[in-house]
């Protein structure tokens, strides 16, 4: 596995949890939101294996529901465990974000 995908996997999971927390969403909408936030480097399809894994770990709940426009779609929402996992991710992310930035900037300056 490339370094890029190693790095992305965990972070993408956190981002997906965070977006789902903002309200029930379905696959296509979720991937569009990720792109809008600037994660355009991530191939659109890569969210589906992650969504399956998050369901297996019972962090999110997927349900086939009628969409406002008519057809049935699979909507995802956060479970209680998912809420905790998101808190944990946010905590870890905040703890490493600033130091990693500083380290990389320092080495760039030299």
């Amino acid at each position: 596995m490339s370094q890029r995908s190693q790095l992305l996997k965990g972070i993408l999971e956190g981002c997906i949890l965070s977006i789902i927390k903002q309200g029930p969403t379905y696959g296509y909408e979720l991937s569009m939101k990720l792109q809008e936030f600037g994660l355009s480097d991530v191939s659109e399809g890569s969210i589906y294996p992650i969504l399956l894994r998050l369901q297996k770990e019972k962090l999110i709940i997927g349900e086939m529901k009628k969409s406002p426009t008519g057809p049935k779609r699979k909507y995802y929402q956060l479970s209680l465990a998912g809420d905790d996992a998101l808190d944990e991710f946010t905590h870890h992310w905040n703890a490493i974000k600033a130091p990693v930035d500083r380290i990389i900037e320092r080495s760039n300056d030299k």
């Binding site: 379905y26 696959g27 296509y28 991937s31 659109e44 399809g45 589906y48 969504l51 399956l52 997927g62 086939m64 779609r73 699979k74």
Partner: peptide, 10 residues
């Protein structure tokens, strides 16, 4: 089947 339908809709 659920994931296949998601992939198709996407």
């Amino acid at each position: 089947e659920e994931v296949l339908l998601e992939l198709l809709e996407h």
